[in-house]
Design a protein around this nucleic acid. Structure first.
Lengths: 200, 200
DNA sequence: TAAATTAGCGTACAGTTGTAAGCTTAATTA
DNA sequence: TAATTAAGCTTACAACTGTACGCTAATTTA
C-alpha cells in the first residue's frame, strides 16, 4: 500500500469515526479528540498528523454533510423530471435523506446554531446554496420575480429544515403526518407568494 | 436574613451565573458545574444543595426562558390592541426581545436541537404553547378553520424563530432588512392559507 | 436554653482531557 | 543501497472535571 493511500485511508477512518459518534445524545462539540482517535483505531497524538485540531475535523464534516445535501438535491431534480409534484417529491426525498443519514443532518442542524462562528458560517453557506438553487428553479418554472422567488425559497428551506429537525424524534407514522402538514404549509407559501405578487 | 430567603438568593445567584456564562461562544452543555459555581461565588460542592445535577439547573433555565417568552407574547398582544399591524407588531416585539435577551433566546435555540431529550421536550413545549396561542388568535380574528390556522401558526412560529437565529449574528441594519423579509414571508403564509382554504 | 437541622466550605480522589517530546518502522528518494 | 521522510506509537504531564466525605457555623425547632 502506498504511503499516500494509507494516509488517506486513516483520514477517512477518522472522519467516519467522528460521524459514527454523532447521534441524538452526542453532538460534535461533546465528543473529544481522544474519543475520535479511539473509534478510528489510532493513538490520540496521531490525530495531529491529519488535522490541526478538532475544529478542522469539524469543518471537514460540515463540508461532507453539505456535499451529501447537494447530491440530494440533484436526486430530487431527477425525480421531479420523471413525474410527480415538485413540493411532494422534494419533501419525500428530503425525508428519505434524513432517515438514512440522520447523523449527517443532525450535525448541520446543531452547528447551525452552535458556538463556533466558523461552523455556523459553513452551515449557513450550505443552506444558502440550497436556497439559491431553489430560487433559480422557481424563477424558471413559475416566472415569479426574483425577489419574491428568493423570499419564497428561503421560507421553504427554513420550514423544511425545521420539519426535518422535528422528524428526527418521530417514528414512521408521525413522520408521515409531519410530511403532509409540511406539504400543506409549503403550498401556503407558494400560493401566498403568487397572490402577493399580483398586488405589486 | 431568613434561612429560606438566603437559600433562594443563592439559588438565584446560580441561575443568573449560568445565564451570564451563555453567549455566542458558550452553550449550556459547554459550561461546567465548577464554572457555574465559581461565577455564582460558591464552592463547587455547594451547588448540590440547590440542584440534583447540572441538568436540573438546565431545565430550570429553559423554564425561565419559556416564561420570558410568554411574557413577550402578552406584551405583543397589548401593543397590537393599541394599533399597528399584527404581523409587523409581533415581529418587532420579538426582535426587541432577542436583542435584549440574546442569551435567553440562544439557550432555547440550542437546546431545541440539543443532545438531551428532556431539554428538547421542554423547549418544544414552550414553542407549542406559543403556536397554540397564535392558532387561537388566528381562529378568533380571521375565522380560518382550526386545522389551517394551526398549520399557519406553526409555520409562522418556525419562520420567526429561524429568523431570530439569523438575527443573532447580525448588526442593526441587517436586522432591519431581515425583519422586512420576514414580514413579507409571513404575509405569504397568511395570504396562502386563506387562499388555500377557499379551495376546500 | 438545648438539640436538631442545614447551607456552605475544604479536602480529596479518580477519571478525562489536549498535547508535547521522542522513538520506531516502513515507504520514498537520491 | 544508503539516507531521508513521515505515519503512528508510547510515555508523560498539567489542567480540569464531577462528586464523596466530613466539618463548621448559624438558623430553626422543641
Amino acid at each position: 500500500m502506498n504511503r499516500q493511500q494509507q494516509k488517506l485511508k486513516t483520514r477517512r477512518a477518522i472522519i467516519d469515526a467522528a460521524f459514527s459518534l454523532l447521534d441524538d445524545q452526542h453532538s460534535f462539540s461533546s465528543i473529544s479528540l481522544r474519543e475520535v482517535a479511539r473509534a478510528a483505531g489510532i493513538a490520540p497524538t496521531s490525530f495531529y498528523r491529519h488535522f490541526k485540531d478538532i475544529d478542522e475535523l469539524g469543518l471537514t464534516l460540515v463540508d461532507e454533510a453539505g456535499l451529501a445535501l447537494r447530491q440530494l438535491m440533484r436526486q430530487a431534480r431527477v425525480r421531479i423530471a420523471s413525474g410527480g409534484g415538485v413540493i411532494s417529491t422534494s419533501v419525500d426525498t428530503f425525508m428519505e435523506f434524513i432517515t438514512a443519514n440522520s447523523n449527517v443532518f443532525r450535525l448541520l442542524l446543531r452547528e447551525h446554531t452552535g458556538t463556533s462562528n466558523a461552523f455556523r458560517a459553513a452551515v449557513l453557506r450550505e443552506i444558502q446554496h440550497f436556497t439559491e438553487e431553489l430560487t433559480d428553479y422557481t424563477v424558471a418554472t413559475t416566472g415569479l420575480n426574483k425577489k419574491f422567488a428568493n423570499l419564497q425559497a428561503e421560507a421553504m428551506v427554513k420550514l423544511v429544515f425545521s420539519a426535518g429537525a422535528g422528524a428526527l424524534d418521530f417514528d414512521k407514522i408521525q413522520r408521515q403526518q409531519l410530511c403532509e402538514r409540511l406539504k400543506l404549509q409549503l403550498r401556503f407559501i407558494s400560493t401566498g407568494a403568487l397572490e402577493c405578487a399580483k398586488d405589486l
